[in-house]
Design a protein around this nucleic acid. Structure first.
Lengths: 335, 335
DNA sequence: TTGTAAGCGTTATCAC
DNA sequence: GTGATAACGCTTACAA
């Protein structure tokens, strides 16, 4: 079994407390003694038992990253959080809930269990408020990313999805296009409804009437995107452009468009959402609303560390701005 | 601060040990007392401190999943491992090394630190053997998935990549194609070289000569795939089919092929590797060698739990068989 | 069946 | 500057 503090102390001929002070760079150890101790520590590659340490100082230096769907593009956020957290001496436990509230609940217990010092919840629908509340009441610290808990006072980092919807739609309008359809995921999803709101606002600002039939709510899947186009085909009244609020939806929609023998952007201009690997693969390259994922993660980690250090985050709700990245799917080649 | 065992004991009017026995379903507690205790536990939603528990019983019930690249398709393996592990009462710490040996090293320290009971290493090149060794010597348990540590005796789960290469190539040969190129990643990667070996074996079994110019080693990137095709174009001697050993490579290759105005599968048949989301998006749908990722994960988790329980895994090296999934990219539509 | 007490490997509060 | 010693919250012999 591994060496303990006691072993090191015996070898160095000092008390455990002295060793503890030495390895934690605390004052109150003679230069000589410190050197001697550290030498032994190095020689035997002693590693303090973090469980015992955690028990004594009441912290685990572990963060839970609770993410709704590991397979989504959220890993960019995760990477960014991890980088900052590691820098500050924290490790991240990535918890995949599979959009399953029970699993989320189970993971939040880690917080109550004190197995992690804090939890960052990324995307997805939020678990039962009661559970969150009990976790919080036990001094569990929480930060939200791209999701909202109404009523509860939890630091939150969001990308302004309404702004994203506005940018996407305005861009299409600026191309002189007027008949713009929107293909969204579930309107129950807060972020999706925000994107729709942005779309509507852009139309309104351009004095265009809302055409109900151009608002296509789907289940957010690839098939959903495919079917959306078919539905329009049946109705017989095709738009000139599409704003698609999810990359997977875009894949399906574009499949359907190509299947119908139409060209992009000649027949339909398209703007997607999220600068994912998927959208980069699509041909022609997709114009997208890009979210500052790296920044999102950095803020989330920063806010969490602030909380852990007893500081208040600079804002309770931090809203970041998305940016339009123009690709080939929305702009007609001139000449 | 949260309730402790002591609090519960006081409330129930019994000793701490009794409470401990009660909540751990251990024998030696009267039916009455047990009920009374559990009632209180439920009422106050008491959660045992896992740090203290871990310290006492010397286990953390945490597994580290060390993965070379979070953004790859490995999350299917991860999900599968997680599912099995959770079932057995373990949580998984997902550690993303970004193909960075230093980070891998840092994460392996978690093992020596006893912050996790075991580590499952998924893909990627393996860290310095010394580090692995010290981790192992400290009773750190390890299981390898889709990577190899020569010399060291570590339980390993592999997919037979040579078999995969063989399946892919044979499939193309069976279509009557003879000039088959292979586009691979780095030959330093064990799995990549295995795929190449399978390709060569298939050619040999069909009495075809090896054409050096049809073996294209790349850096495994999208651009690598793109450039591979350009290189062949320059040489002027185009093959009839491609076996591409990575999905990202396939994306680039197909881009280049389409850019050249060629059709798939009319001009070139293509077989890819790995049933990823990417390959499902590619148009036409890609014929691929599919790996049993779910099974891979289940075995990995099972082997790890076996180790944790002091049992020997059923085999030191478990080799799983890949399967060919035929799509549209390799078969000419007849009629 | 239940309680007592020692121990897990640290840190922290005191004395000295 | 250094060393006992009591926490931290739990498990587990061993006693009763």
């Amino acid at each position: 079994m591994p060496l303990t503090l006691k072993d090191i102390a015996r070898m160095a001929g000092v008390a455990e407390s002295t060793v503890s002070r030495a390895i934690n760079n605390k004052p109150g150890v003679g230069e000589e003694t410190r050197k001697r101790i550290l030498e032994i520590v190095r020689k035997y590659n002693y590693q303090p038992n973090q469980l015992a340490r955690g028990l004594a100082i009441k912290e685990t230096r572990m963060l839970a990253l609770i993410v709704a769907d590991l397979s989504s593009a959220d890993y960019k956020i995760i990477k960014s959080i991890e980088a900052y957290a590691n820098e500050q001496g924290y490790n991240c436990l990535i918890c995949n809930t599979d959009n399953n509230l029970e699993k989320e609940e189970a993971y939040l217990q880690l917080l109550s269990n004190q197995r992690v010092d804090g939890a960052i919840i990324i995307g997805g629908e939020l678990a039962n408020k009661n559970i969150i509340n009990t976790a919080l009441n036990k001094n569990g610290l929480m930060v939200l990313v791209n999701c909202l808990a109404e009523e509860l006072l939890i630091p939150t980092i969001l990308v302004d999805s309404a702004r994203g919807g506005y940018l996407a739609t305005s861009h299409l309008l600026q191309q002189g296009l007027k008949k713009i359809a929107i293909v969204t995921g579930s309107s129950k999803d807060f972020l999706e409804s925000e994107k729709l709101a942005g779309y509507l606002q852009a139309l309104a600002d351009h004095n265009l009437e809302l055409e109900e039939r151009y608002i296509l709510e789907t289940d957010g899947s690839r098939e959903g995107g495919y079917d959306a186009f078919l539905q329009l085909l049946e109705q017989g009244d095709l738009p000139e452009a599409f704003f698609v609020t999810r990359d997977i939806l875009a894949v399906g929609l574009i499949d359907a468009i190509k299947m119908g023998g139409y060209l992009i952007p000649e027949d339909f201009s398209i703007v997607g959402y999220g600068e994912s690997f998927i959208s980069s693969i699509i041909n022609p390259s997709l114009t997208v609303v890009a979210e500052p994922l790296e920044e999102l993660g950095r803020y989330a980690a920063k806010y969490m560390i602030d909380l852990l250090n007893g500081r208040d985050p600079e804002e309770m709700i931090k809203v970041l701005e998305p940016v339009l990245k123009v690709g080939e799917s929305s702009v007609l080649r001139t000449g």
